[in-house]
């Protein structure tokens, strides 16, 4: 479904991704692991086109999407739940969700209502709080809103950047349950995480990114066992 081949991305003259190749197949949850400054978020930004790649190609459903504007990439079916949630604090929950459908300008109103219902069904809390301003929600609710907002563009591939960041452990489990639930309904998901053990227990496959290069990739269960991953990310000597 998504295929990166030899992607190089730099900020000015500073290369951040130095030839990243990875693949996400339809229906999978793929997890991208890596420490600070390994290039995880940049990979997400490059896929979504907010930062253009210098070299390499990105294919989505067999078509090149590198170099396309973000709006077009979103329209083609990729959506991002950004790091730190980044919900619109002074807009209501409903407004946040509608904003997620920004690229669907020709969608009829009842189609949007249908999608809203679907998201309220997935997150009943959001329905209760739909007239509340986004900034007044708790961290967990904001994460639900950020996921709901991303789903409003009707993506086929959902990118998630550190969905567990800044959440209490109980909420982390909840968020990962939601990710599993969305995936079981057919959504393909590429998730970036620092919380390697939880992420790997949920994912089908995983890649490990280090200094802008993929240094390991395998089935998630195998990565959980792998010596290097255990040492680097699971806090074991």
């Amino acid at each position: 479904m998504l295929k990166l081949s030899g992607v190089v991305t730099s900020y000015g003259s500073l290369p951040v991704l130095k030839g990243v190749s990875l693949e996400v197949k339809g229906g999978e949850i793929v997890c991208l692991l890596g420490g600070n400054a390994s290039g995880k978020s940049t990979t997400m930004k490059t896929i979504l086109g907010t930062v253009p790649p210098r070299k390499g190609t990105i294919e989505f459903d067999g078509q090149r999407i590198d170099g396309l504007p973000t709006a077009e990439i979103v329209r083609r079916g990729i959506s991002l739940v950004p790091e730190g949630r980044r919900i619109f604090a002074r807009m209501t929950v409903w407004e946040n969700l509608v904003m997620g459908a920004f690229t669907r300008r020709e969608a009829p109103a009842d189609e949007l209502t249908e999608d809203l219902e679907r998201i309220y069904g997935l997150f009943p809390r959001l329905r209760e709080r739909r007239d509340q301003l986004g900034g007044t929600l708790s961290g967990g609710e904001q994460q639900m809103l950020a996921i709901g907002r991303a789903l409003m563009s009707r993506p086929r591939l959902l990118l998630m950047d550190e969905p567990s960041m800044g959440l209490a452990p109980a909420l982390v489990d909840l968020v990962f349950d939601i990710i599993r639930e969305i995936n079981s309904r057919g959504m393909t998901i590429l998730v970036v995480e620092q919380n390697a053990s939880v992420a790997l227990s949920m994912a089908h496959r995983g890649y490990v990114l280090k200094n802008g290069r993929i240094v390991m990739h395998d089935r998630a269960s195998a990565l959980l066992e792998a010596e290097g991953v255990r040492r680097a990310y699971l806090g074991e000597a």
Partner: peptide, 20 residues
């Protein structure tokens, strides 16, 4: 108007929503 409001609230998120 919606796009402006989104930019005012969070420019990065606005871009991610596909707003130019």
């Amino acid at each position: 108007g919606w796009a402006w409001q989104a930019i005012r609230e969070d420019e990065v998120a606005a871009r991610v929503m596909g707003i130019n």
